[in-house]
């Protein structure tokens, strides 16, 4: 296995401490809606389950990464002193790979079925950050990182920077921080940008996919700034309406199986590869139809 430790393991105590600080802060500011016990429990148990699922599949993913790395274009070492620039480059390219993964996770139902867990809370606080998938391996999300191994970044380096990326994304799941200095908001993903990502308001659907650097969204046309004029509704277009941990983890997979089973043959595959909410008879809402209806309403 990897010769480097998993940085996330070291961050967990800080995650817990920061959650306690946020809980104390929202209580002091009388923002009593920010947390609720049932929701927090669901988020944290989903986080715990995700860690276990990750450990179970880590060996296989690492073996695959090592195999792909044998076809590497460049020979890149791990040593920080001689390869410091490769570490930085790896972090940046990995964040781009994360952007591509994340965008696909919202536009292809197979990937969405795994990612939906992260969006299944109607609350938005630091505990929401820990609502992580149990079925990442099943969704083959790891394919988005394969190009890094092909370039030549060692698997240990890639998994380490991927851990740092995940740690960065923790603190942006909060309403306790409003806006940060302009230069920071311009380059980095922030609580404000990520609130937009978790919103179900038509204006905000499928926006701000960034992990660490918001520049990817600005470059590829998926950026939307947060506006004071609109109160954010967090969660899903169709909220699951339940704190059941297992259901939160698997409901979209069950939905896929149901739809594929019922659909006419020529439409079956589309229920797997089209965007979430797609239906062959157009009877359901997708983010595109919701946005179109909203734009139409705005014109009137």
């Amino acid at each position: 296995m990897s010769e480097l430790p998993n940085p996330v393991d070291f961050a967990v105590p800080a995650f817990v401490a920061l959650m306690l600080v946020e809980i104390w802060l929202v209580r002091r500011r009388k923002q009593t809606r920010a947390y609720s016990p049932g929701d927090t429990a669901t988020s944290l148990f989903l986080g715990l389950g995700s860690t276990v699922a990750g450990v179970l599949s880590a060996g296989l993913v690492y073996a695959l990464a090592t195999w792909v790395h044998t076809f590497a274009l460049f020979d890149i070492g791990l040593d920080l002193r001689s390869w410091w620039w490769a570490w930085i480059l790896c972090f940046v390219i990995d964040d781009l790979a994360y952007y591509v993964f994340h965008r696909s996770a919202h536009r292809v139902r197979w990937f969405w079925a795994s990612h939906v867990i992260h969006h299944s809370s109607q609350h938005y606080n630091l505990s929401t950050a820990l609502r992580q998938t149990w079925t990442g391996f099943l969704s083959i999300a790891f394919i988005f990182r394969l190009p890094l191994f092909l370039i030549g970044f060692p698997p240990a380096m890639v998994f380490f920077v991927a851990g740092l990326n995940l740690i960065y994304q923790f603190w942006i799941h909060t309403e306790a921080i409003d806006r940060l200095p302009r230069w920071f908001e311009a380059v980095m993903n922030t609580p404000s940008h990520h609130r937009v990502h978790h919103a179900t308001n038509a204006r905000y659907l499928d926006r701000n996919y960034a992990g660490v650097f918001i520049v990817w969204d600005r470059m590829f046309g998926t950026f939307e700034p947060e506006t004071e004029a609109e109160t954010i509704r967090y969660g899903l277009v169709n909220n699951i309406g339940s704190f059941n941990v297992l259901w939160a983890a698997v409901h979209e997979w069950v939905g896929i199986v149901r739809d594929v089973w019922r659909a006419p043959w020529r439409h079956k595959l589309n229920y797997v590869i089209r965007e979430p909410g797609w239906s062959h008879d157009g009877s359901r809402d997708t983010s595109d139809t919701i946005r179109a209806a909203w734009l139409e309403k705005g014109k009137q």
Binding site: V16, L20, I23, R27, T32, R33, A34, S36, P37, L44
Partner: peptide
């Protein structure tokens, strides 16, 4: 501990 803190402080109403 985190769940207990949320409960004890009466959040989530």
């Amino acid at each position: 501990a985190v769940i207990a803190a949320v409960k004890l402080l009466g959040l989530g109403r």
